[in-house]
Design a protein around this nucleic acid. Structure first.
Length: 414
DNA sequence: CCTGCATTTCCTGTTT
DNA sequence: CAAACAGGAAATGCAG
């Protein structure tokens, strides 16, 4: 089998900072407000129950995966937006001319678009890039999917005489990772879908659904309760986490007795079954805001959260705010960073580091209360006046984000 | 490969 | 007493 074709995308110099700021902000706006739908595999039918289970797992997982990790046909709106953002960012496309309505479609809809439609929507250059990328991703994932199914079939039925003679080439099984990584280097093109598939209970929530019913959905703590901060899981009245089984607790204790030392332990893959399946290196945290920016964005766009009341302003003018649902915010942050074991305790440590950098000022004597410092920006009323706090989100929001709200993350250094 | 940054993880002690 | 705060220490992952 020949190697799949690799998209020929060249990373061009960045757009202007303000453009990029808008792009990223736009992505954030949508990211936090959208409730992604689980992917449907109903179009696939198979008489084999094992495959059905696999698809069920994939479907569950797919509420979290990035666009580059799955077939464009199954992309959520968020995936589509991320995909577009990626190419906008890498081109000289003027983001201000881009209407969010063009980006507000799911993968299925996207895949119906003709080349001409894409060109008219995104311009000749970007449109062509998108079309090319889409076409190649589609063909690649169609192939990949077939191989994955075949692979799982082999695991399910190892003794099946015909299937056992079939070998699946590694490069074909993970075409995206092997080829894209060669081109993009650090870019996170890898088959995380395979690596991360564990049990359905491993998968965290998606924004609102989890915030209201993490325990019911077998929330994120069921996966990795290894840190003692899990003790704080019952601290939040709005939150309840699934109780650990005795076996889990026992395993935890053994693990901690074996390796206990200061500092952050290496991330362990808890499912050895998949640990050797693909490369473990999880390069590149998703592009996005820093913690304080994440917090700020929750505060200045409360209307974008179906579950409001995560945080609130205590004194908007002074930049004083409070974590109302501290563990929920931590979970949301963890979701953003693909870290299901994030807790408020850990998040708050990161917040405390901001004191020294004067991104935050101390607020003594008030629990869960912080204050933006002189090295933070984008939260002041003047900076966000273009955003009426009570309006529902509209497409105009995208281009209305203030130009002067540029990121200065590097300028906030110690 | 090395270095720096921004966390993340863990811990001990203190305050509310 | 529990939860939150404080901050040291060390590790991680990414960017340059």
């Amino acid at each position: 089998m020949s190697r799949p074709v690799v998209p020929r995308i060249i990373r061009l110099p960045m757009s202007t900072p303000s453009e990029l700021c808008r792009i990223l902000t736009n992505a954030n706006i949508t990211m936090y407000q959208e409730s992604q739908q689980p992917l449907q595999f109903s179009h696939m039918t198979t008489p084999l129950s094992g495959i059905g289970d696999l698809l069920s797992d994939i479907s569950t997982y797919s509420t979290q995966v990035q666009w580059y990790e799955q077939n464009p046909q199954y992309w959520s709106k968020q995936n589509v937006l991320d995909w577009i953002s990626f190419y906008v960012e890498g081109s000289k496309f003027d983001a201000s001319t881009l209407s969010l309505s063009y980006c507000s479609m799911d993968g299925h809809t996207l895949c119906q678009l003709t080349r001409d439609q894409l060109l008219s929507m995104f311009g000749l250059s970007l449109g062509a890039q998108l079309y090319e990328s889409l076409a190649e991703l589609k063909s690649k994932y169609d192939l990949n999917e077939t191989c994955t199914l075949l692979d799982s079939l082999l695991e399910e039925f190892p003794d099946f005489p015909l299937l056992s003679t079939v070998e699946v080439n590694e490069d074909v099984k993970n075409p995206c990772y092997s080829d894209f990584s060669a081109i993009y280097g650090d870019f996170p093109y890898k088959n995380a879908a395979v690596e991360n598939i564990r049990s359905p209970s491993d998968f965290g929530y998606e924004s609102d659904s989890m915030l209201s019913s993490s325990s019911a959905s077998g929330g994120v703590f069921s996966q990795n309760p290894s840190s003692p901060e899990s003790r704080s899981s019952d601290s939040d009245p709005e939150f309840s986490y699934p109780q650990l089984t005795k076996v889990q607790i026992k395993t935890e204790q053994i693990e901690r007795e074996v390796k206990r030392g200061r500092g952050r332990p290496p991330k362990l893959t808890r499912d050895p079954k998949h640990s050797n399946h693909v490369s473990k290196k999880n390069k590149h945290a998703p592009r996005g805001t820093h913690l304080w920016e994440f917090v700020r964005d929750i505060l200045i766009h409360p209307e974008l959260h179906q579950n409001q009341g995560l945080m609130k302003w205590e004194d908007r003018r002074e930049g004083v705010f409070k974590f109302v649902k501290s563990e929920a915010v931590a979970q949301l942050w963890g979701q953003k960073k693909k870290n299901s074991s994030m807790t408020y305790e850990k998040l708050s440590r990161a917040m405390r580091y901001y004191y020294k950098r004067e991104i935050l000022d101390r607020v003594d004597g008030r629990r869960l209360v912080y204050k933006f410092g002189k090295n933070s920006n984008g939260w002041r009323v003047e900076e966000t006046r273009m955003y009426p706090m009570n309006n529902t989100r509209q497409e105009e929001d995208v281009t209305m984000y203030p130009m002067n709200n540029t990121r200065q993350e590097e300028g906030t250094g110690v």
